Simulated assay, not measured.
Amino acid sequence: MNNQRRLGRGLEALLGRSLDEHAPGLTPSTTDTNAAAEDGDGLMSRDAEGQRWLDLGVIEPNPFQPRQRFDEEQIADLADSIRAHGILQPLLVRRVEDRFQLVAGERRLRAAQAAGWERVPVQVKDLTDQQTAELALVENLQRTDLNPIEKATSFQRYLTEYDCTQEELAQRVNVNRSTVANLIRLLELDENVKQMVVAGELSQGHARALLPLSQDRQREMARRVASEGLSVRKIEQLAQDAAVEASEGLRIVGNDGVSRKPPRSERSAQVASLEQELQKILGTKVELRQTAKGNGRMTIHFRDADEFERLRDLLSPSPGLGATGAG
């Protein structure tokens, strides 16, 4: 990973200029057909300024596109803008054998189709599958936010497919590692709850507050958020109360064979609140257990070696502290 070109600065680093740079719009009418020169295979033309143009029909979709939902109203607005001002930024494509594959610009591609255009301005880059996946992530993160589940799914897919760590991915797409870790945790939610996040019925904050709960309780609380408009803080409080209730519902079977409730002091609302606070800080599940005497135990959960390294770095007081420094 270290010897590969880092794309953390995103499309600006690749294209050599800002995505927000204001320039005259490119339109098919600006092409001087008399001066246009055909590229070798006849699929692409160049205008008098050297700008490349491709017919819409020869551009294949990006197989690494993180975005699964496109707002049709936004596409229509962008189509109106394209009709009036042209396309300000050429689409990015790559050659795959004898085909052209979209890398970045699917919203512009869809809007150009809606505007009735037959061809679009493009830049052609020689990119690997991994670079294409990174650029698809970067473009969507920088332009219009994906929903949290789409982000999480794309991050997890990238980590699995390219066998890299969360830290490496965070560096390559220029986000904080905690952002990657917190998003991926959302994939642990109940499927119905995840769909509510995708549909915009639950915010990312609500979803994170539900993570400590069982999937049954997640569904119940999610429905209350949708119907009652509960705040994130209220959900956090209800989650704490639910954790206390769950603990108080436990029974311990003693040596005499009689089942008894554990001491109430073993699980107080204050302990549940501390758990929530630590989970926010660490980005993972934390369990606290305290006895009536005041001593206790803290359990920090991690999913894999990568998350363990992330937590170790977070908890280490200095970069030099390794595993031997832990008591």
Rank of each mutant, 00 (worst) to 15 (best):
M44E: 02
R46D: 07
Q51E: 04
Q51P: 00
V58F: 14
I59S: 08
E60Y: 12
P61E: 15
P63Y: 07
P63K: 02
Q65L: 13
Q65A: 13
Q68T: 13
R69N: 14
E72N: 13
E73T: 14
E73H: 14
E73M: 13
D77H: 12
D77W: 01
D80Q: 10
I82H: 01
R83S: 10
A84G: 02
G86E: 02
G86D: 05
L88V: 11
Q89G: 01
P90N: 10
P90D: 13
L92F: 06
R94T: 12
E97V: 06
D98N: 12
V103E: 07
A104D: 13
E106G: 00
R108F: 13
A111G: 00
A112R: 03
A114Y: 00
A115P: 04
G116R: 09
W117T: 02
W117V: 05
W117E: 09
E118T: 13
R119W: 11
V120L: 04
P121F: 08
V122M: 04
V122L: 09
Q123E: 14
Q123S: 05
Q123P: 03
V124W: 03
K125M: 15
L127I: 14
D129T: 11
D129R: 14
D129K: 06
Q130E: 15
A133S: 15
L135C: 14
L137V: 08
L137F: 09
E139H: 05
E139D: 12
N140K: 11
D145R: 02
L146K: 01
P148E: 14
P148L: 03
P148A: 15
Q156Y: 11
Q156W: 10
R157L: 07
R157P: 02
L159H: 14
L159P: 14
T160E: 15
E161G: 06
D163W: 02
T165M: 02
Q166L: 06
Q166K: 09
E167S: 10
Q171V: 11
